[in-house]
Computed example of a mutant assay.
Amino acid sequence: MRINETERDALYKVIFSRRDVRRDFIPEPIPDEVVERILMAGHHAPSVGFMQPWDFILVTDPNTKQAIKAGYQAASAESAEQFAADKQQTYKSFKLEGIMEAPLGICVTCDRQRNGPVVIGRTIKPEMDLYSTVCAIQNMWLAARAENLGFGWVSIIHDEVLRDTLDIPEEIEIIGYLCLGYVSKFNDKPELEQFGWLPREDINSLIHRGKWSQK
Rank of each mutant, 00 (worst) to 15 (best):
I168L: 06
A143N: 05
R163Q: 04
E191G: 06
G152K: 12
I124T: 13
V108E: 04
A80R: 01
C179M: 15
E127L: 12
R112L: 15
T123E: 13
E78A: 14
I157N: 05
Y182G: 10
E97D: 08
E147P: 06
A74C: 15
T90R: 13
A75H: 07
A102G: 04
K185T: 15
P126E: 02
W153S: 09
A80D: 03
T90K: 12
L162F: 11
E147V: 04
W153K: 11
P190D: 01
S93H: 09
S93E: 00
Q113W: 10
C135N: 02
L192P: 00
Q82L: 02
G176K: 11
I156W: 01
S76G: 07
L130P: 08
A143R: 00
P126N: 11
N148A: 11
V119E: 00
G98V: 03
K189I: 08
L166E: 00
A80W: 00
K87L: 12
R145W: 06
T109Y: 10
V161Y: 12
K92T: 12
E147R: 01
P199R: 09
N187D: 15
A85P: 01
F83E: 03
L162N: 08
K125V: 15
L96R: 02
A77W: 09
G105K: 07
R145L: 08
G105E: 10
I124K: 10
Q138Y: 05
D188G: 05
A77L: 14
I156K: 02
T133N: 03
R145D: 08
G98P: 06
P126V: 13
Q82S: 08
K185C: 12
A77Y: 10
T90G: 14
F83A: 03
I172Q: 02
L198T: 14
H158R: 10
Y182T: 04
Y182P: 12
I99K: 04
D129C: 06
L166Y: 07
A136D: 09
V183R: 05
Q88E: 07
Q194P: 07
G98M: 09
C110E: 02
Y182L: 00
I120T: 14
N148I: 13
L162Q: 09
I106A: 05
C135Q: 01
E81I: 15
N148L: 11
V119S: 05
Y177C: 13
D129F: 00
V161D: 00
V183H: 00
A84D: 15
I168T: 08
V118F: 08
D129P: 04
E193P: 09
E78G: 14
L96I: 00
A143K: 00
S79G: 12
R122T: 15
L142Y: 02
I106T: 06
F186R: 04
Y91Q: 06
L130W: 12
F186W: 07
